[in-house]
Design a binder for these strands. Structure first.
Length: 592
RNA sequence: GGCCUCGUAGUACAAUGGAUAGUACGCAAGUCUCCGGAACUUGAUAUCCCAGUUCGAUUCUGGGCGAGGCUACCA
């Protein structure tokens, strides 16, 4: 059990035995003592002061006295300031913890819960390459999945490819018009970029045609509808739905190019999926559920034949679930997919990693699922994340301010390379080792930058800041790890020496206390579905270690016992940094 | 218009209702006979405004002001 909980429990027991007051251990507030006060952990007494009708100082002294007497193995001393009871932790407790866990490969990870969680993330459109926003999504989704895994859940990672619709038809039309049979192979362009280029060509041609029509006297609105290229795209969508062989063949070909491109990017950033759903195969799902909903009176039919759900009593509006012509709308397939996913995987919980512009959609989706009493509908959770903005504002495709994922990754890796070469510490690496290292550092910087912020909040992507390798960054943590590994390469643990567990120095103590918090951090990250908890923690730990390391020598420690203690400290710190960064999807190099 | 987020140093981010609001970048000044200086130490600078609840509010409530998102028989 971690220290905070031990303190809670001890306090709870004492309050009961001394004052016959029953309090829930979870209601006892235990903080880390602020550095300006003496002590390690602080029990905040105000909430009991009122109930017990005692003055805070007296209560604090009574409790402190009893705690240090009855739990003398745990506490080394106490002081009371106002309503705060500051407790010192006995060095031996911390040393024992360190000694015990430094050999534990799974330190921080929880036992199996027997529960299964699905995480759906990434979910790209297949008409253009991935951009910066997708990266936040991918990193978040992957990391949240591994957070759940660390907390003992079985995980299923899924993705839905939006492979049909007007967007891909636009690329297809433009390809027919302008490509002269060009392919990614013939041009040497990565498949997703290749198809994306035709999407841009469509937009340009569309704009040109509209301009011409307006010049001929049409209004903007008319021109939008009448432009031949748009009509062609819409016709192609109809032909696609009708199963026109030529259209289907072209569609398969172009999607294939896109997937080839995506595969390269996914592999590079480490995104993987247990199951990929394709919208072309799911878009007709859910129709039977509409019937079901009508029978259950969850849905109702309007005079024109369209089917709706009334969510006004839930504070929302009426929402259409089937058009008057009987065709499904977008949300219908999502409802159908819920059932499909459950039938296949039987997950207790289903997390959708989707941007916050779809908050409304997911509110509606969950409500509908619950009203239809679909399996595990209470487990539906929309992990809503904020948009990534640039210093110039929001990314806008039409203004060409979209930051391309592949370009960005290349740039980060290139800078990692330049910087590494300048420092010249790994000149003995082979070419392939260097390539791997640059990837590790460049991607580490990028992932850390995007994951260090609370997912719920929109964030700013500042290109200059993102490539900084100092301060609150991935490379800073990686560097700390590499330094520790360097020490451990040179020193062996001598198991014959016993640790007495006395005389911990403040900087040693600081690191050990942080290490002891790791399990609680893993829990918190899971409860909040928030990788930034882990990123912040990893950075604090690295910083704390660096402070210790500049002050105290490991190899030339004051005594053999100190040396052993510090080697354990190095070992566990390295282990935790490795594990924490791993949860973020970031590798740590032995040398850099 | 309605609904939902969000306003913390120059900038970007932290802070389960708890002590003198943390961290990084930037800025200023330092540290080295250093096991890896991509490091460490020190300093200046902030809770949008007004009320309320509370022993205590960045956090909760109400009202302003400001920013963003959603509000398709599109996906």
């Amino acid at each position: 059990m971690d220290l905070v909980n031990q303190i809670r429990q001890a306090t709870q027991e004492l309050i009961y035995s001394k004052f016959q007051l029953r309090v829930d251990a979870r209601d006892i507030l235990v903080n880390e003592t602020k550095p300006e006060f003496e002590g390690d952990y602080t029990v905040v007494l105000f909430s009991f002061v009122k109930i017990l009708k005692k003055n805070p100082e007296t209560l604090g002294n009574e409790l402190g006295q009893l705690l240090t007497e009855r739990y003398s193995h745990l506490f080394s001393g106490f002081n009371v300031i106002k309503g705060f009871l500051n407790l010192g932790i006995a060095d031996k407790v911390l040393v024992d913890f360190l000694y015990e866990e430094s050999g534990n490969k799974d330190f921080g990870r929880k036992n199996k819960t027997g529960k299964k969680v699905m995480v759906e993330y990434s979910s790209p459109n297949t008409n253009k390459p991935l951009h910066l926003g997708h990266l936040r999504n991918n990193f978040l989704g992957w990391s949240v999945a591994s957070i759940y895994q660390a907390n003992g859940y079985e995980i299923v990672k899924t993705c839905i490819a939006n492979d049909r619709g007007i967007h891909i038809c636009k690329s297809m039309i433009a390809w027919q018009m302008f490509a002269n049979g060009a392919t990614p192979e013939s041009t040497g362009i990565k498949g997703d970029h290749f198809v994306g280029d035709y999407y841009v060509m469509f937009s340009n041609e569309y704009k040109k045609q509209m301009k011409d029509l307006v010049a001929e006297g049409m209004t903007e609105e008319e021109a939008e509808k009448e432009a031949p290229i748009m009509k062609a795209a819409q016709k192609m969508l109809v032909d696609w739905e009708a199963g026109d062989p030529t259209v289907i063949e072209l569609w398969k070909k172009m999607n294939g190019w896109v997937y080839q491109g995506f595969d390269i990017t996914y592999k590079r950033i480490g995104s993987d999926f247990d199951k990929i759903y394709y919208e072309s195969q799911t878009y007709l799902l859910g129709k039977d559920l509409v019937e079901d909903g009508l029978r259950k009176n969850v849905f109702f039919k309007k005079e024109d034949g369209s089917v709706w759900i009334d969510l006004t009593s839930d504070g929302l509006d009426q929402k259409i679930v089937q058009r008057k012509d009987g065709t499904a709308v977008y949300i219908t397939q999502d409802i159908g997919l819920i059932v499909n996913k459950y039938d296949e995987f039987h997950c207790d919980q289903s997390i959708y990693v989707v941007g916050d512009e779809q908050n409304y959609h997911f509110k509606v989706l969950k409500l509908i699922a619950q009203k239809l009493a679909l399996p595990s509908s209470d487990g539906i959770y929309h992990l809503s994340y904020g948009m990534v903005e640039l210093p110039s504002g929001r990314m806008k495709a039409r203004e060409g301010t979209v930051v391309d994922a592949d370009d960005l990754i290349d740039e980060m890796v290139r800078i990692a390379q330049t910087h590494t070469e300048e420092l010249g510490k790994v000149q003995d690496f082979t070419a392939s080792e260097l390539t791997e290292l640059y990837d590790t550092i460049g991607l580490g910087a990028l992932k850390f930058y995007l994951l260090r912020v609370d997912p719920k909040k929109k964030m700013l992507f500042n290109p200059e800041e993102s490539i900084d390798f100092h301060g609150f960054t991935g490379p800073f943590v990686q560097y700390t790890y590499a330094r520790i590994k360097s020490i451990l390469r040179k020193e062996e643990l001598d198991a014959n020496i016993q640790l007495s567990g006395k005389g911990l120095l403040p900087l040693e103590k600081g690191v050990i206390k942080l290490l002891a918090r790791y399990p609680a951090m893993i829990e918190q990250a899971c409860l909040e579905m928030n990788p930034s908890v882990i990123a912040n923690y990893a950075f604090s730990l690295a910083k704390s270690f660096n402070s210790f390391y500049t002050e105290h020598s490991v190899s030339r420690a004051e005594s053999e016992e100190k040396k052993l203690l510090r080697l354990h400290l190095c070992t566990l710190t390295a282990r935790v940094l490795h594990s924490a960064m791993g949860i973020l999807g970031i590798k740590v190099p032995d040398r850099m």
